[in-house]
Design a protein around this nucleic acid. Structure first.
Length: 441
DNA sequence: ATACATGATTTAGA
DNA sequence: TCTAAATCATGTAT
């Protein structure tokens, strides 16, 4: 249920309209390298569509061919012809009549909704937005989708790096397109200007031509934007997928969880508060804490024997902590007034060493000393300590059954004792008297 | 390559 | 909604 921190399918939904991510992936990998070649292609054949041969206006770089030379000569002859003004006016008249110059002049393109959507998306993803915080919004969203844990900074930076890459490609391509568009527009304008000497070309016509060119280029830009959007979405979905993948918790996190588990073996059900605290300490989500305890309980119960060594280990740790606690408490009792235990607002111990972390957690559960009864808590620590001492004394007999955390906490039908039973009440010194046959799997 | 460990998910029950 | 139990899927050690 709430187990998944990333939430199955949390990613990829943003672009859901485009189709399943797999397909997108293929589409993009096939399409990505292409845009670089487009401007060149757009430049050359575009001119061939006007009525006059554009190559007639020799580009400054290339020497005119024999054909060009002939055409230039003819043009020059035409321009100098004495009948030219008369012919020109006739042409104007004809054009007026055919209405060529008016047609399509008022084609004002409204803002394309799809283009707007793409623009918005790119902005939201931090691709087309302002230079700095780019991607931070998306990354934050992704982090939120994953449960907000902060243990994935590597993936995070990886994501940002890739997003930056996409962003760069997008901008260079966009720049190229704009440049190509401008070049082509000025080229066409020059041609039209040149042609206007031999045939009537109204400013409206020029405007229209420019409009056509811009529309063409903006459609190419839209393709670029679409590809970029797809790339970002794929990156996102992959990023989230990667987070969905199982990753072992850090050693420290496992230790913290184990310490809690084995010190609350009689009732290994952390409260919501305790879960939150554990989650914070382990840099994982509360759901992950719940999962961990669920797994741990079932696996411990299934094969107690296997976990005994681990249990002893953590018991020893607990004992050390307890020893410190007892020492501190005793000292406190001697030096301070007996009614002022060294506790914070939540009633936790302030231990002089690193063990206090664990002690704090213990206090959170509320089962170590309800009602801030530090005395009782100290008693439980003493019990643990005493028990460990006993255990280490009897450990050499080598029999699995004689272990600190023998399954005395489990009742006959395999369940733990009543969940309300605090661990400190059920003294660990109880010993291996209780029943347990299910040490094997 | 394999077995084992472990985090996540699913299912069913209370 | 929480949990137990089964199971899946991946990480890790050999």
């Amino acid at each position: 249920m709430g187990g998944s921190p990333a939430g199955p399918g949390a990613g990829g939904q943003v672009l859901g309209k485009g189709g399943p991510p797999r397909k997108l992936c293929r589409a993009v990998t096939a399409r990505w390298p292409q845009p670089a070649g487009r401007p060149r292609r757009a430049r050359s054949p575009g001119g061939g569509r006007t009525q006059e041969p554009f190559h007639a206006v020799a580009s400054p770089g290339s020497p005119p061919s024999a054909l060009d030379r002939g055409s230039l000569r003819r043009k020059h002859a035409l321009n100098c012809h004495r009948m030219k003004p008369a012919l020109f006016s006739v042409l104007c008249e004809i054009k007026e009549k055919t209405g060529l110059s008016i047609r399509g002049a008022q084609e004002e393109d409204p803002p394309d909704p799809q283009l707007m959507r793409l623009d918005n998306m790119l902005l939201a993803e931090g691709v087309s937005g302002p230079e700095k915080g780019g991607g931070s919004a998306a990354a934050a969203a992704a982090a939120a989708a994953s449960g907000g844990s902060s243990d994935n900074s590597i993936e995070h930076s990886d994501y940002r790096a890739k997003l930056t890459q996409i962003r760069q490609i997008y901008h260079t391509e966009l720049e190229k397109y704009e440049q190509a568009c401008n070049e082509f527009t000025t080229h066409v304008m020059n041609l039209l200007r040149e042609q206007s000497r031999t045939r009537p070309i109204s400013p409206k016509e020029i405007e229209r031509m420019v409009g056509i060119i811009h529309r063409k280029f903006s459609s190419i830009q839209m393709q670029l934007k679409q590809s970029t959007c797809e790339a970002v979405m794929i990156l996102r979905s992959r990023f989230l997928d990667a987070r969905r993948k199982r990753r072992n918790f850090s050693k420290q996190a496992t230790e913290i969880l184990n310490e809690y588990f084995y010190s609350h073996l009689s009732n290994p059900y952390p409260s919501e508060e305790a879960k939150e605290e554990l989650a914070k300490k382990c840099s994982i989500t509360v759901s992950q804490v719940s999962n961990w305890f669920g797994n741990k309980r079932i696996r411990y119960k299934k094969n107690i024997g296997k976990f005994q060594e681990e249990a002893n280990l953590y018991a020893a740790k607990t004992a050390v902590t307890a020893a410190h606690a007892v020492a501190a408490a005793v000292q406190n009792n001697q030096t301070n007034s007996p009614t002022t235990p060294n506790s914070g607002s939540s009633g936790s111990f302030n231990l002089p060493n690193s063990g206090d972390m664990f002690m704090n957690m213990q206090s959170l559960n509320g089962d170590s000393y309800q009602g801030s009864q530090v005395g009782a808590n100290v008693q439980s620590q003493v019990d643990t300590l005493r028990h460990v001492i006993n255990q280490t004394g009897g450990y050499s007999d080598g029999l699995g059954g004689n272990s600190l955390y023998s399954p005395h906490n489990l009742n006959a039908n395999g369940g733990w004792q009543d969940a309300t039973t605090p661990s400190s009440v059920t003294s660990p010194t109880e010993g291996p008297g209780s029943v347990h046959s299910d040490t094997s799997n």
